[in-house]
Write a protein that binds this DNA or RNA. Structure first.
Length: 738
DNA sequence: GTTCTAGAAC
DNA sequence: GTTCTAGAAC
């Protein structure tokens, strides 16, 4: 690897300096970026200080200052090239298809570069919302929606599309650097090719990998593309149908038995069959065999083999073989989708996902590895590094995902298991040169290791009897060594060991709260109790002495008191306040509290019904804050309009719209199943960017968000529509009948 | 200049 | 939890 890097560096050097005498080399720079990302600014900056002739081609202004067509842009660009000028293409170009025709302008005539202005969505939205008199006329409230929609479809450019150079800019500094570079580009200069500035701090390594891949990518896409698509086209429909059926089955089962969607589920890609070129027939046999073996031992878990494409060959093979082996289709099935968006796009809850990692456990490269690292954010890189430096073929390592990771927040993924399979590709490290005896063993080991790791995670989850128990164990294990691997299925021999290992994993992964408290206050059970500020005692006072607060109490029983939230964050916002002294927050709730939680819930539902009878346009959620600000357990019953002057800041918003808010139905279910409810109390959750709770679009600040939600009519995300999490006029009748 | 956030005090 | 306000962002 080091050798590769050195080689690449040498090449760069030659390219950057060694092209005098070759004459003028025109460049087509295809800008890629959402509205507000600064494409026009970029063009103007380059052209104002350029050392070569540039023509800016902008679709928004191409017809005498007015918007034109793509064809007109192509013509203008071609004309410019013919005159020996270089081209700055100023249009969004976020999708590959939109870029393809412009890339074709290259070839012998010109180098084609991409400059990706990949600034945070928030920045683009903020700029396009605020701008006035922009040529594209994308202003005002609609801008945010447009930007969001476009960003969802974005496909980062790849060298394989035909670019000779791609520059990613993630912030203003990157943009300025890129401007400077193109300004300084003289008529006969040529910039080094490759990918630059992609999300990795080790740009050189990244470049090395990308260059290395470029060659392989092309080779592969030519050979395996024709081979595979033709073959699979004939059965594509079939697979699609099967998967449709399958998905329906899953949906049905989730709606019938409320627990299925929360069964620990592992989503995994096929290991070694794409980039590592392992034979699909042999691989599918191994997948099905190891799954069958695993499912015999493991109870109450699900496995899902995921591939991006309906045309996946391996998915079809595994599907057929699993059916022939009569593998229980509720415990194992295949799924077509992006493994980093199974929940948000596919409605499939998977708390653990596997990553087809490289031996260095580095992000980038391509395929699943790049996708997962990029979706999980830097948090995964850091967490991975803490655990291991590298991975050997046939093994795997589980990494708990910090709650700050977008994958955790958006998809509910708590662990990523990195797996490394055997390599049959001569252009990759450790190639087995067609030795399928060795290869098959390694692939089998890889899956076994993956499933074992998953089993440990699932097992520990189920083992969480109650929070107190866990805390006690945590403390006793707190100082132990960490680097051992998880081992064993659910055999009694390994059980103790497993618990130990998993508790360690939990200590590291779970909400930092526990760690902090166990570090600060070691052994005394009393001192572990949270201290509350004076203002945080108001609810406790009402709960213990409701008779003194008749003015605010709406309803009262022995178990709870109902009152309006003093600072309602929506049109309707009431609290169902437990009267049980000593039960202060969700993390203290245990099985013994289930009757109380259930009656609080149904009291809340009754109020929802009352509110709905007054205004049927409202929708409601019932839930708890993971870490409440006020003492005394209280259930929020809140309408989803969030139309209130008291909703003023990010914390308010995120406390009701992220995983910080734990739906009462889920809380009850988790306590029934595991003895405790999961709390997502990470501070970062409350500092997250502002997203619409309906359409998930991002907004630059609270006022903009509020004006958006006042008008957003998008349907709620699918997860809220399941399991009676969201109550509305149409759903409440079904909730009642349950 | 105004708008908006975020930290401290309560 | 809210209020107040300095100063960042626009």
């Amino acid at each position: 690897m080091n050798n590769d890097d050195a080689l690449i560096e040498g090449e760069e050097h030659r390219n950057a300096n060694g092209d005098e005498g070759r004459g003028v080399v025109a460049v087509v720079v295809i800008l890629v970026g959402a509205p507000g990302s600064g494409k026009t600014t970029f063009c103007n900056a380059v052209m104002s200080a350029a050392r070569r002739a540039w023509v800016r081609v902008c679709q928004d202004t191409i017809v005498n200052g007015k918007a034109g067509t793509k064809v007109q842009c192509l013509k203008a660009a071609a004309d410019a090239l013919r005159e020996g000028k270089s081209v700055l293409l100023d249009r969004c170009n976020l999708e590959q298809e939109q870029r393809a025709d412009f890339v074709k302008l290259g070839g012998s005539r010109a180098d084609v570069h991409a400059v990706v202005l990949d600034l945070p969505a928030k920045v683009c939205i903020s700029r396009s919302v605020n701008r006035t008199g922009h040529e594209g006329n994308l202003q005002g409230g609609k801008a945010a929606a447009v930007v969001n929609r476009m960003l969802q479809k974005k496909e980062p450019p790849k060298l394989s599309e035909g670019f000779s150079r791609i520059t990613f800019c993630q912030n203003d500094k990157d943009v300025n650097d890129a401007v400077g570079m193109y300004c300084g580009l003289g008529p006969s200069d040529k910039l080094p090719s490759g990918v630059f500035g992609q999300k990795s701090k080790e740009a050189k390594v990244q470049l090395g990998i990308m260059k290395f891949l470029k060659k392989v990518d092309k080779d592969q896409s030519q050979s395996s593309f024709s081979r595979e698509t033709r073959k699979s086209d004939s059965c594509a429909m079939e697979i699609e149908n099967k998967n449709e059926d399958k998905k329906e089955k899953v949906d049905q089962s989730t709606s019938h038995s409320t627990s299925l969607s929360d069964v620990p589920t592992l989503a995994f890609p096929s290991i070694s069959t794409s980039d590592f070129q392992f034979d699909h027939g042999k691989a599918s046999d191994i997948i099905v065999e190891t799954i069958a073996e695993f499912l015999q031992k493991a109870k109450n878990v699900r496995l899902v083999l995921v591939d991006l494409s309906h045309k996946s060959n391996i998915l079809a093979l595994v599907w057929d073989k699993a059916a022939k082996k009569s593998i229980d289709s509720s415990k194992f099935f295949t799924f077509v989708g992006d493994i980093t968006q199974l929940y948000s796009k596919g409605g499939l809850r998977c708390n653990v996902i596997a990553n087809a990692a490289n031996w260095r456990l580095k992000p980038g490269g391509g395929g699943v590895n790049a996708a997962i690292f990029s979706a999980a954010g830097e948090a995964l890189e850091v967490a991975t590094k803490e655990r291991a430096e590298s991975l050997s073929p046939g093994s795997s390592i589980a990494v708990p995902l910090p709650p700050s990771s977008p994958l955790y927040q958006r998809e509910g993924v708590t662990h990523v298991i990195h797996v490394l399979g055997p390599n049959m590709n001569p252009q990759r490290p450790n190639c087995l040169k067609n030795d399928y005896v060795k290869g098959s063993k390694i692939l089998r080991d890889a899956y076994m290791s993956l499933f074992e790791n998953f089993a440990s995670i699932a097992h520990s989850h189920a083992k969480r009897e109650n929070v107190k128990d866990l805390k006690a164990k945590r403390e006793s294990f707190n100082d132990s060594e960490t680097s051992k691997k998880y081992k064993g299925f659910f055999t009694s021999d390994d059980e103790h060991n497993n618990e130990h290992e998993q508790l360690l994993a939990e200590i590291r992964s779970d909400t930092s709260k526990f760690i902090k408290s166990s570090e600060k206050e070691k052994n005394s059970a009393e001192s572990r109790k949270r201290t509350w500020s004076s203002w945080a005692l108001a609810l406790h006072e009402i709960a213990i002495h409701p008779e003194k607060h008749k003015g605010v109490v709406l309803e009262m029983s022995n178990e709870f008191v109902i009152l309006n939230d003093l600072y309602p964050k929506a049109k309707k916002h009431v609290l169902v306040l437990s009267r049980l002294d000593g039960l202060d927050s969700l993390e203290d709730a245990k099985k013994e509290h289930l009757p109380l939680l259930r009656s609080m819930h149904s009291a809340g539902v009754k109020w929802v019904q009352k509110f709905l009878s007054e205004d049927s346009s409202l929708s409601f959620r019932l839930g708890y804050h993971s870490v409440p600000s006020m003492r005394q357990l209280h259930l929020h019953v809140i309408s989803q309009d969030f139309d209130s002057t008291h909703l003023k800041n990010k914390k308010h918003w995120n406390s009701f719209t992220t995983m910080f808010f734990r739906d009462s139905v889920d809380v009850i279910q988790e306590i029934e199943q595991y003895g405790a409810a999961k709390v997502s109390g990470d501070e970062k959750l409350l500092a997250m960017e502002l997203r619409c709770h309906r359409c998930r679009s991002a907004h630059p600040n609270i006022p903009k968000l509020k004006s958006h939600i006042a008008n957003c009519k998008a349907s709620f995300p699918s997860n809220l529509l399941q399991n009676c999490r969201l109550l509305s006029a149409s759903s409440v009748t079904t909730a009642e009948s349950k």
